[in-house]
């Protein structure tokens, strides 16, 4: 029994707690399918996937940094900045590369500040968040503008009845899987994070791993995933908005935590993060369909986060 509990709560596992949120998600899914007429419909499945997708994308990037014991509070600002760039009334051939150039630059500065200047990741990325939000409001003080048609089509289109959102999900998961589990970069992330979590921050470096370079690349990757989430959101709202990103900062950390990634670093998984983001989206969608009062929805979200995270010890989760 103790062993089962330890497995469910992700104790002694490098992948962290992910089975429990998966079970919670399945139970919630089944309950909603039985209790509401509209939940188990193709239309709602499409809605749910589109609602979860930006959070899945940004949470995957956030997880890479969290695995290294870091945190990126600038992801929300990168999302807003991305939508503002895309709504500049310029061709997609210019704005989309510009979005990624900006994301790489932001990630590079974040990574350099953390690794070379030894600034605490929370402070470094919070400062960066303020800088980007300022620039975004300069570019687009008010929501509006038009994003290129191709971006809109890439998000809301479908091929043979299959929404493009499905392909977004497959592409992002494949990319993240390759980065984390199919490359040296991923191995190094877990090695560096494991060392940091056990109090030996230079352990990986001692074994010849380029820890600073890996950390720098993780921050760049995180910003690029946030930019990708921004492109998806711009396609959904068909405009630029300086205020659309910030809620994703906390939500991405929440999704990562729910998915079992420990904020102290070294422990976590891609599937856990995807489950975490899906559970959050399911919670929101499910409460809407179950007619849960708007006055209590936020409280329920908080309670679910507390319940899931409470299964991990404070020391292990890194808070």
């Amino acid at each position: 029994m103790k062993a089962v509990f330890a497995h469910l709560t992700g104790q002694n596992s490098r992948q962290g707690l992910w089975i429990l949120p998966l079970i919670a998600g399945i139970v919630g899914f089944a309950w909603l399918a039985v209790s509401t007429d509209q939940f188990a419909t193709p239309q709602n499945a499409k809605n749910l996937l589109a609602q979860a997708m930006p959070l899945i994308i940004v949470a995957i990037g956030q997880m890479m940094v969290v695995l290294l014991g870091g945190l990126d509070l600038s992801v929300g600002a990168v999302i807003s900045f991305t939508t503002a760039i895309l709504a500049l009334d310029a061709p997609a051939a210019i704005t989309i590369p510009a979005v990624f150039i900006a994301a790489i630059a932001i990630g590079f500065i974040n990574g350099t500040t953390v690794t070379r200047l030894n600034v605490n990741p929370i402070i470094a990325t919070l400062a960066m968040q303020m800088i980007i939000m300022g620039l975004t409001r300069l570019m687009r003080p008010v929501a509006g503008g038009e994003v290129p048609e191709v971006v809109k089509q890439l998000v809301s289109g479908a091929v043979f009845g299959v929404p493009f959102t499905v392909f977004w999900g497959l592409l992002v998961c494949l990319l993240a899987w390759k980065m984390l589990y199919g490359s040296r970069f991923g191995l190094h992330i877990f090695a560096i994070g494991g060392g940091i979590a056990s109090g030996q921050s230079d352990a990986a470096h001692t074994f010849g791993i380029a820890d600073k370079r890996t950390t720098l690349l993780a921050y760049i990757g995180c910003s690029c995933f946030a930019a990708l989430a921004g492109i998806f959101l711009a396609g959904r709202i068909v405009s630029g908005d300086p205020n659309i990103g910030p809620p994703f900062t906390l939500d991405s950390v929440t999704a990562v935590a729910i998915g079992g990634t420990q904020l102290s670093g070294g422990v976590g998984s891609l599937h856990g993060t995807i489950i975490g983001a899906l559970v959050l989206a399911l919670l929101s969608n499910g409460m809407n369909l179950a007619n849960v009062s708007a006055f209590v929805q936020t409280a329920i979200k908080g309670a679910v986060l507390l319940a899931v995270v409470a299964f991990q010890s404070r020391k292990k989760i890194g808070l």
Partner: peptide
């Protein structure tokens, strides 16, 4: 059915989708 976007534009898009559903 009162849905709260909680000052979150992405949530407002989702809320309207859920009402249509």
């Amino acid at each position: 059915i009162l849905l709260d976007a909680n000052i979150d534009q992405a949530k407002q898009v989702a809320d309207i989708e859920d009402l249509i559903a």
